[in-house]
Design a protein around this nucleic acid. Structure first.
Lengths: 354, 354
DNA sequence: GGCACTCCTGTAAAGGTTTACAGCCGCTGG
DNA sequence: CCAGCGGCTGTAAACCTTTACAGGAGTGCC
C-alpha cells in the first residue's frame, strides 16, 4: 500500500506497475525500455519523489558531507576558511558540516574520533594547540583528516600550514625599511599554534634585520581588541620611545591603534602599526591597517581540495601524508605608509548585509 | 564473519556470543543480565565500536542535523547568526549543516525543497529577497523551516524579524538629538529584504522627527566598504552642507568614514556617522562607529530555538506559524558622540586567531 | 509437583536504496 | 524449427540499526 509518509521507490513501483529495481535503474539513468522509462518518470514526478539520502548513504557507504571543525566560528580568519571550504565542497557536490570546538582540546579529539560514526566522509580540523593526545588521535583517525596548523612530522595526516615566520619577517622588514627601529610586538597566547609561531617569526625577523631583541618591547596577552589596547598602553608607558607596534593579529592591531589614538600619537607619523591576517577589520581601521595576509582563504581551499583528493575513488588512499604551506603576502596600507590605500579603493567589495 | 570494515553490532555479537538484539539493548541502556552486559561492553570496547549514525538515522527517521542557509557566509551579520545557531544546535545534540546560497534565489528555493531528501531535520533560511516563488516553496516545504527575514502573513512557516524601522528611527533620532539636521542616508540595494526595510525606516524616522525628506540626501548602492566610500563622496560633492551620514550597514559606514577622512572632515565634529548591525567592524573603525544592533545573534538564537521546538516530539507540529521580532538597540560610540567609547574598553573580547 | 509469572534472550522485520543474479521474451542465424 | 543470444525486468540480498514478538529458563506459590 502506498500509505503515509513521503513517497519511496516502492510507491513509485506500485503506481507504475513495475519492480523497485526498474524504478531505481530508470532514476539512476541505467537502461530501460522506453515505455518503462516513461511510466516510472511520470509516477515519480506525480508523487513528487525525492530520493532518501540517508538510505542511499547507508547503502553505498558515504554521506557526501565534510566536517570543518574550528575553535571559534566568529573569528574572521576562520570565516575566510569556511567560506572557501564551503565553496569547494559545494562545487564538488558535498555538504559542509560546521563544528565549533570552542577552543576545547577534548572536543577537538572528540571530533576526530567521531569520524567513526560515518556522519561525514572526512574532516578538516583547525586545532587550537597540538598535544601528544592529538598526535595519537590523528594517527588512529578512522577517516581522512586534513589539519590546518603546524603538525609534527610523523603524523600520517595531510596538513596545510601558514608561514608565520616568513610572514612576521615581511612585516618587520617593512617596518625597518620604513625607518623604524624600536618595534614592539604584541602577541597572543604563546601556548597556541598561532601565538607560538608568530613569536618565533618576530624574533627571527629581528635577527635577520640585525636588530637586537629587547624583551621589554614584547608582551603576550589574549587575542582581542581590548587586550590589544591595554597591552599597547602598557608598552607605551614602559617604553615611550617605541616607534612601531607589530601585532600578532588584526584584532590586537585595532586595539593598538585605539590606544595610540588615545595617547595622542599620530599614525603612521609617530608610530606605525602592522597586523596579521589581513581580515576585513584591516580596511575598517583608520588609518587602514598594514597587515600580513597569511592566506587563510587559500589554506581553507587547499585543505578542502586535499581532503577531496583523498575521497576520490581513484586512489586507494595509499598516498603518503602531504604537507603544504601557504605563502604570506604583505599588504601595505596607511598605518605604516602615509600614501597607501586611498579611501574608496576597490578592496572588500560585494559583501551583502541583512 | 567479522571481516573487513569497521565493527558493527554483528561483530560484537559474534565476539560476545550473544545476539545482535542483546548488543543493541545493552548499548542503549535497556536491561540485560549482568554477565551479558559485561561481555557486550567488553567486546564493544575491544573492537572500538562506534554506532553507525547513518543506519540509526534511517531506522528512526531523523538525522539530528539542522541546515542553516545564508546568502553569504563572509558577512559579519550572518557570522553572528551562525555562531549562535551552532551553539544552540550543539547544546541540543544537533549538528549544523552550513549552506551558502550565494544570494541566488534559485538556490534558496532548492534548499527548501531539498529538505525532502531527509538530509537534515529542519532548516533556518535567510533569503536575500522574498518572491512569490518563495511563498509557494515555503508553503509546500517538506519539513520544518524558520525564516529569518520579513515574511508575508499567509505563509505557514515560523519567522524571526529584525525591526529595521525602529532601528533606523533610533539612529536618526539620536543624530537629531545631537543637533544634526541634514542627515544623508546611504542604503544598499533596495530590492533586497534589508535594503527595503531600512529605507522605510529612514523615512519613517525623519517623519517622526519632523524633518522633511530630501531625495538629494539619499543614495542606494551595493553593500560594501568601497561602495559606501564612493557613495559618500558623491553625496558630499552634491550636498557639502550635510552634517551626518546614516548608513544601512557597518560596511557602508566604514566606507563613509573613509570618504569623510579623505575629504578632510572631522568625525564627529563636522560630520557624524552611524551604521547598522553593530558588527565587529564598528569597533575597528576610528572613531569607533555608533551603530544599531539589530540583534543578529539574537535572531539566530531564536530561530534555532523555534526550529528545535518544532522538532520536539511533544508537539505533533500542529502549532500555528509564529512570528517574532528582535528589538533593536542603539550603541553609541565616538562617531556620533565625542566622549563615548574610550579605547581599551571591554567590548569584543576573547576572539581567537589563527 | 505443576502452574504462572518474570526476566532475559533470540529471531525477524522494518527503514529505503542499490545491485548481483537469474529468468523471460523475442529475435536472429543456421 | 531450434539453439542461442541480447535486452529488460524482477527477486532478493545487502548496508546497520532498532524493536515487536515469541520462546526459554528459572522462580515462587499453591
Amino acid at each position: 500500500m502506498s500509505s503515509g509518509g513521503p513517497p519511496t521507490i516502492v510507491s513509485i513501483a506500485e503506481r507504475a506497475g513495475v519492480s523497485i529495481a526498474s524504478v531505481s535503474r530508470v532514476l539512476n539513468g541505467l537502461g530501460a525500455r522506453p515505455e518503462t522509462e516513461d511510466r516510472v518518470r511520470r509516477a515519480a514526478s506525480e508523487l513528487g519523489y525525492v530520493p532518501n539520502a540517508v538510505a542511499r548513504s547507508l547503502k553505498d557507504g558515504h554521506t557526501r558531507q565534510l566536517t570543518f571543525a574550528v575553535p571559534d566560528i566568529g573569528n574572521p580568519v576562520y570565516v575566510a576558511m569556511v567560506r572557501e571550504i564551503q565553496a569547494v565542497a559545494k562545487a564538488a557536490g558535498y555538504r559542509l558540516l560546521l563544528h565549533s570546538t570552542d577552543a576545547d582540546v577534548a572536543d577537538e579529539l572528540g571530533v576526530v574520533r567521531s569520524l567513526a560514526d560515518r556522519t561525514s566522509d572526512g574532516l578538516v580540523l583547525v586545532p587550537i594547540r597540538i598535544t601528544p593526545a592529538h598526535v595519537e588521535a590523528l594517527t588512529a583517525a578512522p577517516g581522512p583528516v586534513v589539519v590546518i596548523g603546524s603538525l609534527p612530522d610523523g603524523v600520517p595526516v595531510d596538513g596545510v600550514q601558514a608561514d608565520s615566520v616568513t610572514g612576521a619577517e615581511l612585516a618587520v622588514r617593512h617596518l625597518v625599511e620604513s625607518g623604524r627601529r624600536r618595534i614592539a610586538f604584541v602577541n597572543g597566547p604563546v601556548d597556541t599554534v598561532p601565538g607560538g609561531n608568530r613569536g618565533r617569526g618576530y624574533r627571527a625577523a629581528l635577527a635577520a634585520c640585525g636588530i637586537p631583541y629587547d624583551p621589554e618591547l614584547v608582551t603576550a596577552t589574549d587575542f582581542g581588541v581590548g587586550a590589544g589596547a591595554r597591552a599597547t598602553a602598557r608598552l607605551l608607558a614602559a617604553r615611550p620611545d617605541l616607534d612601531a607596534v607589530f601585532c600578532a593579529n588584526d584584532q590586537l592591531a585595532i586595539g593598538a591603534v585605539q590606544a595610540l589614538h588615545a595617547a595622542g600619537r599620530r599614525i603612521p607619523r609617530d608610530t606605525a602599526v602592522a597586523g596579521m591576517d589581513d581580515s576585513d577589520l584591516a580596511v575598517a581601521a583608520w588609518p587602514p591597517l598594514t597587515s600580513v595576509d597569511l592566506g587563510a582563504g587559500e589554506r581553507g581551499r587547499r585543505a578542502a581540495r586535499m581532503l577531496l583528493e583523498r575521497l576520490a575513488p581513484g586512489s586507494g588512499e595509499p598516498l603518503p601524508a602531504r604537507r603544504t604551506t601557504a605563502a604570506p603576502r604583505l599588504v601595505v596600507r596607511g598605518s605604516t605608509s602615509p600614501g597607501a590605500a586611498p579611501a574608496g579603493s576597490d578592496e572588500q567589495e560585494g559583501a551583502k548585509s541583512a
